[in-house]
Design a protein around this nucleic acid. Structure first.
Lengths: 193, 193
DNA sequence: AATCACGCTTGATCCAGATCAAGTTTATTT
DNA sequence: AAATAAACTTGATCTGGATCAAGCGTGATT
């Protein structure tokens, strides 16, 4: 489990063996079965979780009961309601497992302690959040400026793994489309060439 | 100029006088007149800029020539095309001044050097990006799940300064709405109570 | 192997917000 | 202070994608 985490961290910064031991000590391990919740709206988000294995999603549910996907996270990605995690306020998102998964989790207090004890982790997370910001900015632009079809083809180019791995109705929700619309788009694209 | 920057940094982390001197040495100062460009699409974004005074916007322009606002930044905020800034690839965004402005700017190489020399700056930017991520996530959700009117009223609640300070057509673009639509929404809201 | 449930498709209709087209008001520039 | 150009409003019309409704596969569950 930790190999996945360390290989991910070592991609961005270097660590001594001692630092790796300290890091280990701050994380707890958790197994989640398909469909199991990691976080429910209204609870406080007590963890930032690194996915070592499996696939999770975060989403929120509007007044009409419709789900809106925020993020998918598989091996090598982090998932959390950062807003709730950093502020201690109630989460507005739900997180659950799409596939059986294994996680490494850290609490806000331990996150704070970890970055103070191993300052290079601030750098790691700085880089992580910086990259994440780029992704979010692109998605936001795409959602504002593109047609439904463009959104889908862009996602397919930029994130082929999502297309392969995630059920179509969840992809539709991720793109802010009705499932029927996505179905029709795929039909059109297929027939057109 | 630097007082604004330091007060912003000291809000999140503490600095010694020596560190402050090092930080100073990495930034250059720039004055921008209203409507002047800081970055044009297609150029490489050579700076991350801290706004000490004034107001800027970043936006992109689609094939039809329509502008889409990404961010507004005034005193105490950063502005950049981070994607281009971090990768050295061509920028997809434009940045220009809405009001006469003064900036403190840092290049990618100096940004790297600064974080290595003053590691606590990694922490500062980690926190900055983390907060920024929360904001982006909220905006994305809002753009996917809400009606035009909800988007506007939420913005008005969460970001009253934008409403007061920014021309209405730019706000419309920021929300992904036609200017006519925003005009009608405001009319409705006003008449309704 | 039959039933059930869920995800996907296809068709018909509807609507929020875009677009087009004038005006009007408010800032800039000369 | 006149001229010009932005920014905003109001009305009429149009449309991409949502919604509603029904049927179709395919893989779980008994």
């Amino acid at each position: 489990m930790f190999e996945v985490l360390f290989s991910h961290i070592l991609d961005k910064v270097s660590l001594t063996v001692e630092e790796m031991d300290i890091i280990k000590s701050f994380f707890s391990h958790k197994v989640l079965r398909k469909r199991q919740y990691l976080l429910q709206e209204g609870d406080v988000c007590k963890y930032m979780s690194f996915v070592g294995k499996g696939l999770l999603r975060s989403y929120n549910i509007d007044e009409k009961g419709d789900e809106h996907m925020i993020v998918f996270a598989w091996e090598g990605w982090w998932i959390s309601d950062i807003s709730s995690f950093s502020s201690g306020e109630k989460a507005v998102f739900n997180i659950d497992a799409i596939e059986d998964s294994e996680l490494l989790m850290i609490t806000p207090a331990d996150f704070e302690a970890l970055t103070l004890k191993v300052p290079i982790m601030d750098r790691y997370f700085r880089i992580l959040f910086q990259n994440s910001l780029v992704t979010k900015e692109r998605r936001l632009m795409s959602s504002i400026t593109h047609t439904a079809e463009e959104k889908y083809t862009q996602l397919a180019e930029r994130n082929p793994e999502i297309i392969q791995r995630i059920p179509q109705n969840l992809i539709a929700s991720y793109l802010g489309l009705a499932p029927e619309t996505l179905s029709r788009i795929k039909k059109n694209l297929a027939s057109r060439k």
